[in-house]
Write a protein that binds this DNA or RNA. Structure first.
Lengths: 218, 218
DNA sequence: CTAAATTTGTGCAATAAATTACAAATGCTT
DNA sequence: AAGCATTTGTAATTTATTGCACAAATTTAG
């Protein structure tokens, strides 16, 4: 039973929404209401939510607490993933400091940087090593996931080192650089500049057509 | 003639690759080679590139300089977009400091923050205003695009202010918060934590199936 | 208790995107 | 100059994703 990527993405959104509704004390919600808030068609919401079994109640809607727990189970981790962050510049710091970064799904077990000011110290409670030690430390500390927040020029060399550790399973990269990664490693990318380019491109298209061809909502 | 989003995304990748090949002095490249580097099927590359007219040469491949200019024209801006950045924390600073952020396609005309240390000063040459002034300043300075790098709790209020300016056309948000945006505004989102959740989810799925069902490459 | 109003779950249709397969064009080799 | 090896462009097909429409379940009102 495999789940499509767009479905997982929406499940995460539903989960966030249910969490906040739970806090507000809301008890029940319909697919139409979920859809309106998130900019998704109600039928899509129902299809996504029913994929893992009947969880709603006909004529009523979805029970917020129940749905929340349900999605939590679907998205649950089998264990706490061991993560390392390479690049403790502004972006890395932004990540570390972000509330959403404190998750029970993973723990940050090592940092890497080339700045002598940072190497050898603990930053926010985590040991920072020199980037030359990525392979060794990742294996020693049994790191499964690498978050790559280094400058574009350093990206490939960090990846090359990281994949030498047999413990590595996935990489999430925040760099516009093209990197080569072996098939056995799951690779995801967050590319701010691609998104910005896309926004400007479709802004131009809208202007050309002189008005709005219904872009993305939320 | 409308262009699909996945196509635009790949065009941006092709453009980056061609730029770097151009610098390396490479003259010719085939769809197969492009595809291997970027993790895209050669046929997909050809379909994307031929969409705007025949640009390659059969039996030979694509001329790097020519292809570079070609894609540049497709992605070109009609003018320099006027952009503002709300939230000059770590993430905002990371953006401002990034090499890829210096583009001839847009110029940053205003910053917004609530920190009294920053408000009223120039940061990297750009005036920083208090977030309460978003609506006024955006209209005064004719800002068309807002980059939203504020904490989740502040996101909706910033958007509400920004959409009051009739000059606003698009928003790129870096927040996991759900925000309501009117249809006339083009809205894009970069959500690091959704990507991280997706990575962990599919890592779990791989493990469950005991081995790799060919994930995303690059 | 019956009828009307909601709202889910889901088979089927429609749309979007990726892949295949191959003719046409080009260059290289002999 | 003829034949072979490349490589593009694209029509046709396949796969993926979304949207529609309606039966089934539930609640509310009279």
């Amino acid at each position: 039973m495999k789940v499509a990527e767009p479905t997982v993405e929406r499940l995460i959104q539903y989960y966030r929404l249910m969490s906040s509704m739970k806090e507000e004390g809301r008890k029940v919600v319909s697919s139409l209401q979920i859809g309106e808030i998130l900019g998704i068609k109600a039928s899509q919401v129902r299809k996504d939510l029913s994929y893992f079994g009947e969880i709603g109640k006909r004529g009523v809607g979805y029970h917020v607490n129940r749905l929340c727990t349900h999605i939590e189970n679907i998205l649950a981790s089998p264990r706490v993933w061991r993560v390392a962050l390479a690049g403790v510049g502004n972006l890395g710091a932004a990540l570390m400091g972000h509330a959403a970064f404190k998750s029970y799904k993973f723990s940050v077990e090592a940092l890497f940087d080339v700045d002598p000011e940072k190497v050898g110290r603990k930053i926010m409670g985590v040991d920072c090593f020199h980037s030359d030690e990525i392979a060794r430390v990742m294996e020693d500390r049994n790191i499964e996931v690498l978050l790559l927040a280094v400058p574009a020029v350093a990206a490939q060399s960090c990846v090359d080192q990281a994949v030498r550790s047999p413990t590595l399973k996935g990489i999430l990269a925040f760099t516009p650089a093209t990197v080569i990664v072996p098939d056995r490693i799951l690779f995801y990318r967050v590319d701010i500049f691609v998104e910005l380019e896309k926004l400007l491109f479709f802004l131009k298209e809208r202007e050309k057509n002189n008005f709005q061809p219904a872009g993305k909502l939320i």
